[in-house]
Simulated scan of single mutants.
Amino acid sequence: MLLDTASLYFRAYFGVPESVRSPDGTPVNAVRGLLDFLARLLRDHRPDALVACMDADWRPQWRVELLPSYKAHRVAEPDAGPGGVDVEETPDTLAPQVPVIEQVLDALGLARIGAAGYEADDVIGTLSARATGPVDVVTGDRDLFQLVDDARGVRILYPVKGVGNLDVYDEAALRAKYGVDGRSYADLALLRGDPSDGLPGVRGIGEKTAARLLETYGDLGAIRAAVDDPASALTPAQRRRLHEASDYLDVAPDVVRVARDVDLPAHDATVPGAARHPEALAALAERWGLGGSLERLLSALGENAGE
């Protein structure tokens, strides 16, 4: 099980009231919400291994160099982070909770992995490519639908409400929803565009048109070849708009497709049956008032190990 951790703690933050606070009054709704998410995932899915994948760089410079608009609207403070890294706009009461989440995961002994210069998506892509057995990717980010692969047993668990209600995307579900398989989803996404990631897409080509083009031609390369083929079935408007978007289409695939060959640190993804650092965890529980949320997660860890 691979967690798109930021996606999940953002959902926890907005799904759990900010009135959930530590003894000193600091909001811990994202922390406690994420712990409850994890407990439910462990109980419902019983993973043998689990990795909390992190954004070491939420807006990698190499992607920005290819497409300057990439996530540009989400930058709060350009070059304000360590080493001049852009800082993502984050709710004031969420940002302080992220280090607490990281400390709790570490004290529990759950693997937590990021890679310099890469997003969590790239870590997930790499780990899913290396996996020798079935993989469940838990994310609220549609970008990762490109990893769906029935042959390799890779599916997406997409939270609809909390994590108790998950849409499961395998190839059949992806085709039913978007008209494409995992292999074609990245091409669909870049043709359609995604304002939330600063991807302009191709003007006049929405999701359904993109899916029809991919069904007809197979992939982005073949669609672009059809632009220069007078015998192709592209309409004049499609031909013109795809031609006008040539510069964008030259770079978009490298921006949209997740990396699958990132150099990752050594790690143990085994799901522990109990906290690996109980004293550190107890101190965090007292300091932040983690209460029943942590107890439920520890119970779920024990049940998972006992199965």
Score class of each variant (00 low, 15 high):
81 G>Q: 06
81 G>H: 05
82 P>H: 03
83 G>P: 08
84 G>R: 00
85 V>K: 05
85 V>G: 03
86 D>R: 05
87 V>I: 14
87 V>N: 02
91 P>M: 05
92 D>F: 15
92 D>P: 15
93 T>S: 15
93 T>F: 04
94 L>Q: 07
96 P>Y: 06
97 Q>A: 10
97 Q>L: 02
100 V>M: 06
101 I>S: 05
102 E>T: 15
104 V>P: 05
104 V>C: 11
105 L>M: 10
106 D>C: 07
107 A>Y: 10
107 A>D: 14
108 L>A: 07
108 L>N: 10
109 G>A: 00
110 L>F: 12
111 A>W: 03
111 A>Y: 01
113 I>F: 05
114 G>L: 02
115 A>M: 00
116 A>P: 11
116 A>E: 15
117 G>E: 10
119 E>P: 00
119 E>Y: 01
119 E>T: 04
120 A>Q: 02
121 D>M: 00
121 D>S: 02
122 D>F: 02
123 V>G: 12
124 I>W: 06
124 I>M: 11
126 T>P: 06
128 S>M: 01
129 A>R: 04
132 T>Y: 10
132 T>R: 14
132 T>A: 14
133 G>P: 01
136 D>P: 07
137 V>D: 00
137 V>R: 03
138 V>R: 12
139 T>C: 07
140 G>F: 07
143 D>Y: 00
146 Q>Y: 04
147 L>F: 09
148 V>H: 04
149 D>T: 04
150 D>H: 08
151 A>T: 13
151 A>V: 09
152 R>H: 14
152 R>E: 10
153 G>E: 10
153 G>K: 09
153 G>F: 01
155 R>E: 02
159 P>K: 01
161 K>D: 15
161 K>A: 14
161 K>M: 11
161 K>F: 14
162 G>N: 13
162 G>C: 12
162 G>L: 06
163 V>Q: 03
164 G>D: 10
168 V>D: 13
169 Y>G: 03
171 E>R: 15
172 A>L: 15
173 A>K: 10
174 L>S: 12
174 L>R: 11
175 R>C: 13
175 R>K: 15
175 R>A: 15
177 K>L: 10
179 G>V: 13
179 G>A: 13
180 V>T: 10
182 G>D: 05
183 R>L: 13
184 S>M: 12
185 Y>S: 05
185 Y>W: 04
186 A>S: 11
188 L>V: 09
189 A>Y: 00
189 A>E: 02
189 A>K: 11
191 L>P: 00
191 L>E: 06
192 R>T: 11
192 R>M: 09
193 G>Y: 02
195 P>Y: 10
197 D>N: 08
198 G>Q: 02
199 L>P: 00
200 P>C: 02
204 G>C: 09
204 G>M: 09
205 I>K: 00
205 I>H: 00
206 G>S: 06
207 E>N: 01
209 T>V: 07
210 A>W: 02
212 R>S: 12
213 L>T: 12
214 L>F: 14
214 L>N: 13
215 E>Y: 09
216 T>M: 15
216 T>Q: 15
216 T>L: 15
217 Y>C: 06
219 D>I: 08
221 G>L: 08
222 A>T: 11
225 A>N: 07
226 A>P: 07
226 A>K: 09
227 V>R: 09
227 V>I: 14
228 D>M: 06
